[in-house]
């Protein structure tokens, strides 16, 4: 997706979490977590409800600050603008047309007005939404809305794409279309972190799996190893459908 001739942008990598804890309401939701993310494999973050998956996404994205510990991006304490993009479980689209949503995003990302229409058309086509360009974004189907949210995130040309259960509310067909878009982004060099509680989706998508349990990383392993030969008792329990919070 990115022009190869473009000079490499200064370091987002590695994204490093050191002893990160997040507490709220007297509860420890993320508990001394260490994690390092580097470009490459599509990483699925899994775990039972309440394991801290969504919090982890928000911490990495810089939307919330950790109660303890540090998160660094290369040598910087905060991610550079537009380097990390997020897609949430429920797409939050502006009360405008599909095309206007993308226009707003491109304007935010600093693209000059004249360059935007061409880029909008390309993004809509990528999402399979060319025919819906002028429609109110909020009247699109769930799958269309999520695809729009995804290309809006990709429009920033991020290095890291964080997806928080983006297919949770979608039917199988819509899920398949969304997954195709995600795979394509990953193959074009965007580091994808996909939060999902859907084991089938993880089997289809993941190259690497992180299992979160009670705010800690219970296991991190290549996908095949994780699914076929899980090391930790939590992973074995989880895959057997027995791991609860």
């Amino acid at each position: 997706m990115r022009d190869v001739a473009e000079p490499p942008r200064p370091g987002l990598w590695p994204v490093t979490l050191r002893a990160v804890a997040f507490r709220a309401g007297g509860q420890t939701l993320i508990d001394g977590l260490d994690l390092e993310l580097a470009p490459g494999a599509l990483t699925c973050v899994m775990g039972p409800n309440g394991a801290g998956k969504s919090l982890l996404v928000r911490l990495i994205a810089g939307l919330i600050a950790p109660t303890e510990g540090t998160i660094t991006y290369g040598s910087a304490g905060a991610p550079a603008k537009n380097r990390i993009a997020v897609v949430f479980q429920r797409p939050v689209l502006l009360r405008r047309s599909a095309a206007a949503n993308l226009d707003h995003a491109l304007k935010t990302y600093g693209m000059p007005r004249a360059a935007r229409p061409g880029r909008i058309a390309a993004l809509l086509s990528e999402a399979g939404l060319t025919a819906q360009a002028g429609q109110a974004a909020r009247l699109l189907s769930g799958g269309e809305q999520q695809r729009l949210a995804l290309v809006r995130a990709l429009a920033a040309e991020p290095d890291l794409l964080l997806l928080d259960e983006p297919a949770a509310n979608l039917d199988p067909q819509a899920t398949a279309m969304l997954e195709a878009l995600i795979r394509r982004a990953s193959s074009e060099g965007v580091k994808v972190v996909l939060v999902t509680h859907d084991r089938d989706q993880a089997r289809r998508m993941a190259e690497e799996v992180i299992l979160l349990h009670r705010g800690r990383i219970a296991e991190r392993a290549p996908a095949q190893a994780f699914f076929e030969n899980p090391k930790s008792p939590e992973a074995r329990a989880y895959l057997a459908g027995r791991l609860l919070l």
Binding site: R58, V86, F88, T108, Y109, A156
Partner: peptide, 8 residues
């Protein structure tokens, strides 16, 4: 959250 994630 969405706007902050977009860096607005």
């Amino acid at each position: 959250e969405m706007l902050r994630a977009m860096g607005v």
